[in-house]
Design a protein around this nucleic acid. Structure first.
Lengths: 240, 240
DNA sequence: CGCTGGATTGACAGTAGTCAAGACCGGTGG
DNA sequence: CCACCGGTCTTGACTACTGTCAATCCAGCG
């Protein structure tokens, strides 16, 4: 079960055998969460840290006017709320996009993990990648047109899913409504619709059911200036 | 000199004496950087990690169309590029806003620091706060009007400066041109100008020279829905 | 087959960008 | 002390992108 965590952390470099054993010895309780329900809400500070095993979730913030800004998507292997263990309170909420399977790690376990330098370091690296992604999103919202924004988002989505084996060269699942895409890109649902149509007319992508098809990834990347360097997928371990 | 780093890290909780000694034993070379020059550029992967001692800097990304998106401001005590030590390559650039004093830590030193669990953990916490700030910026760009965006940015700026002793209740330094504010908020300089005028007319702020005055912080916060929880300034150390 | 949520459309409103001219301001050299 | 300069800040006119509202269409489902 916690293999997942080992795999995630070791994607940044091997862990000492001790550390792997520690992780695998942790007690944890799995549970399922229904689609569209909250996993944790802004302001909460519960004792456990959630780790996604399967399904998709997203981080979001509610604004005063009632609108919602989605600020990240979580895939299998991602931490939901390390923040809670370290910073005390959630400054945003997390909800399940699809049905989600997650494991809850008691906070003490997480703190024990952080007592291991190699694990702590791997978590820091994971956090740095998340941060880099947020910076790219910021550039996306601040500097690109609606059409480019959406295209860029799809490129990233596909790339991330491919990294965890959930996408082939042709396409991938995309369990999002246009409203949700809009909440992600700071656009209205109507405008997302129009942008999608423009992209379709250019033959840059197909969207059928909940499935995204990208006939020519190169062309799409070129159209929206997508350069995946910020995802640090090679995640080379720097030699010490 | 490296006291700075100790202070930064201990803002998240005390460090073991060993760790403090390690930090203070590190060799480091200070240097100055002229205003408006780059400190490090996207794609680079040099050996040293920079730490800001004084002055202001900012992270930015260049987009295909030549526009620039500023994605963070760095104050005294902030790390410029931990990324380089851990992830290998910069995915964005950093430039000096004003004249900046920084110390360069050799990468091996940084990796040694990360070998200490408590230090590694404090760095993780610092990174989590940066991440939270990026999420709030994303919500700011995605969900608020131009006027609110700018107001929110000023609230945050003042709050952060106050946290490091650079702002009083009345106001603080703001060494930014309207163009730079625009590059930060995804707005044109002209529109920033108009938004500022609106805010001034409402009596929410004054901007003279490079100085920002906020007569009534409460009112400004209310106007832009600024809630500083995401800065985690109290940074309570969670009891183990 | 009728519902229901999501996707599409069209008309219209409003926000933000662009371009270009002119005012202002601090610093420089005479 | 003053004129000059370059960079910012302001302004106005105009354009273009994006949002809003509301009706309609469509596909999956009980």
């Amino acid at each position: 079960m916690t293999h997942f965590l080992v795999r995630k952390l070791e994607s940044f470099g091997p862990l000492p055998k001790d550390d792997v054993e520690l992780i695998e010895s942790l007690t944890s309780s799995a549970q399922g969460v229904k689609a569209h329900s909250d996993i944790i809400r802004e302001g909460e500070a519960p004792g456990d840290v959630n780790l996604i095993l399967g399904g998709f979730a997203y981080r979001y913030k509610l604004l005063k006017d009632g609108s919602r800004q989605i600020v990240a998507y979580l895939l299998a292997g991602d931490f939901c709320d390390l923040h809670v263990a370290l910073l005390g309170t959630m400054d945003h909420s997390i909800a399940a996009l699809t049905e989600v399977q997650l494991v809850k790690l008691p906070r003490e376990s997480v703190l024990a993990l952080l007592g291991r330098a190699a694990i702590s370091r791997a978590m820091l690296m994971a956090t740095l990648v998340d941060e880099a992604t947020l910076r790219e999103w910021l550039a996306n919202l601040g500097g690109r047109s609606a059409e480019q924004r959406v295209a860029h988002f799809f490129c990233e989505w596909h790339r991330r899913l491919r990294a965890v084996g959930l996408a082939g060269d042709g396409g991938c699942e995309l369990p999002l409504t246009q409203q949700e895409i809009g909440d992600t890109m700071g656009l209205s649902a109507v405008h997302v619709n129009r942008s999608l149509q423009a992209l379709r007319e250019k033959g840059l992508l197909t969207l059928r059911g909940r499935r995204l098809l990208i006939p020519d990834m190169k062309r799409l990347c070129a159209a929206c200036d997508f350069r995946p360097n910020y995802l640090h997928l090679e995640a080379a371990v720097p030699a010490v």
